[in-house]
Design a protein around this nucleic acid. Structure first.
Lengths: 207, 207
DNA sequence: GCAATTAGTAGCCAACTGAAACTAAAGTCA
DNA sequence: TGACTTTAGTTTCAGTTGGCTACTAATTGC
């Protein structure tokens, strides 16, 4: 499943057949390919670009047909940066906003769970950074996070925790975007720091 | 991969062949079984009991042999409560402490990653509660968390966040364990509450 | 009665977080 | 030129969280 931030909304790449409902792109891997390679090839073929970040989601066991020969689908999520996603997509494939994906029941559930997983991974992998150019303004970074998360963040808090984590460093360049004060450009430059052992977060054990 | 808290330490169930190094139990599913069913059957066969909690970890693509026929291994983690794990294990299978599992390189890496994943899920699924009897003392609950996490927690903080999350409710029973003050028994009774939208946790984006 | 042991609570302090209000630097337009 | 708008970035404050120490409570063993 491929996601891309386009025109201020998160989009998902779907296959729209001439008749029948939309579904997610899939492929049956050829011999000699590893799973991640297959997924990347599928991305390149359907979206015309390689994802900036990609991770395995889950394996689904379809009906197993013969003893010993299991039929398993392995789902991946990938995210493609906006400019790369503007390349040409495969015939029949189209970017649609995740809010109006119009997928059938099962595929809609996969999409929901994929979004949840991607949002959790956002805390652990530099997904947002891979979707931005090498240097970016902090407002761009925040807008990217908000787009991926689907909700808004507070500017001061966002910058404070970013500062505290030593993830970015300022360059000496500034960018003027027309109106408003020019913004300083930053680059992703994480510095190692010891991970503190947190307690248990009972509050997210939601039901 | 099956885990169980036994004698104050987290144990993992390994297959110990007569010669060669230990490895994790595995199975090639029969026709007509779904993936979770296969995993539960494997658990019952090797550990003699069903896990109280089980989730899919990851799929590994081994070398794909023929076009169209992919060979994929799907890894699961499960956790079995202490009494259930004391049943009879399959021939050649044995519970060993995770700290001294003595697995070969690739399997050792899988174990490490499985533990990490399980510890993250601990915040999101009632893993610890499924490993305890229906009623339990708060000290038992804390010890279970510490055992699964592998580090100690602070009593007061633990109880405070547990209280704030409305996850347990007190019964009117008390248990005396020999020496010391008797402990009140609690039961797992999560009450719904709206999930607040947290900001971004840059601090866990470790490298 | 008194020490030892385990359960449970109170309160302090530092760190974190959300919100609002502020300053700063640019463009727009009369 | 100078008020107004827009975006960037900082400061401050108050409320919450989380780790820690120190306390009280109830039981057994001697």
């Amino acid at each position: 499943m491929l996601l891309a931030p386009r025109e201020g909304a998160l989009h998902v790449l779907v296959d729209k057949p001439l008749r029948g409902s939309a579904h997610l792109p899939w492929v049956s891997p050829r011999g000699g390919e590893t799973l991640p390679t297959s997924a990347r090839l599928l991305a390149r073929r359907t979206a015309g670009a390689e994802p900036g970040w990609m991770e395995q989601l889950q394996a689904f066991g379809d009906q197993l047909k013969h003893p010993g020969s299991a039929s398993v689908s392995v789902a991946y999520v990938g995210v493609i940066s906006a400019p790369a996603a503007d390349g040409r997509t495969a015939r029949g494939a189209a970017w649609v906003p995740v809010a109006h994906a119009g997928l059938a029941g099962r595929h809609a559930a996969i999409l929901e769970s994929a979004l949840d997983t991607m949002r959790v991974r956002l805390d652990h992998a530099p997904v947002a950074f891979k979707l931005l150019p090498p240097t970016f303004t902090l407002s761009e970074l925040q807008r990217m996070y908000e787009l991926l998360l689907g909700w808004t963040l507070h500017k001061a808090s966002f910058r404070r925790s970013l500062q505290a984590a030593y993830l970015v460093e300022p360059t000496d360049e500034w960018r003027s975007e027309g109106r408003g004060r020019p913004a300083q450009l930053y680059r992703f430059a994480p510095r190692k720091r010891r991970q503190s052992r947190r307690g248990v977060r009972f509050d997210v054990l939601g039901h």
